[in-house]
């Protein structure tokens, strides 16, 4: 009888504990918190990594390191579906998709000297570049010779907000 009472008490405590923790939790935040000093609230269209580092972005969503030995698992399990827009504000990234570019009917040697994957050349649009990962985005920004020869608008297609901040 005593053990049954103990079990009931334990169950009640367990239930109440979960309820209290749930109600009192403020860790999970759906929207960017308002920063009182600067009276700042993230406007729509501004990407999070404008202000936050990538490490911060991942830490906010508690990624595991279990699946790093095969990148596909990491994408499947650890990459939030809304993350793509944090970085690019475009359609979700498919890392396996090779970006398309316009070319002539006859194949010719690529005079640009790079791999032929050129940010901003996807069907002639800018700002819709498909990248392998945020790290790749950094590499692309540093740029090859071919990238350096690109116009300003091409460069802005990778990090357009940096430019916007300077302008602002």
């Amino acid at each position: 009888m005593a053990s049954r009472i103990c079990r009931s008490v334990a169950l009640s405590i367990f239930s109440v504990l979960i309820l209290v923790l749930t109600v009192s939790s403020c860790y999970t935040i759906l929207r960017h918190p308002r920063i009182a000093e600067a009276d700042y609230e993230r406007p729509s269209g501004v990407r999070c990594i404008t202000c936050h580092t990538e490490d911060e972005m991942w830490q906010f969503h508690r990624p595991s390191t279990r699946y790093i030995y095969y990148p596909g698992w990491q994408y499947y399990y650890d990459t939030p579906w809304w993350y793509d827009s944090y970085w690019y504000h475009t359609d979700p990234v498919d890392p396996e998709t090779v970006p398309l570019r316009w070319r002539s009917f006859r194949a010719t040697r690529d005079k640009g000297g790079d791999s032929g994957i050129r940010p901003g050349t996807l069907r002639g649009q800018t700002g819709n570049t498909k990248l392998k990962s945020p790290d790749d985005a950094e590499n692309k920004e540093k740029g090859s010779e071919g990238d350096k020869n690109k116009s300003k608008s091409d460069k802005r297609s990778i990090r357009p907000t940096k430019k916007k901040k300077k302008d602002g």
Binding site: T28, I29, L30, H32, H61, P80, W81
Partner: peptide, 10 residues
């Protein structure tokens, strides 16, 4: 359905 969150998970 994971709700988009700034931090944490729902």
């Amino acid at each position: 359905y994971p709700f988009p969150t700034y931090r944490g998970s729902l």
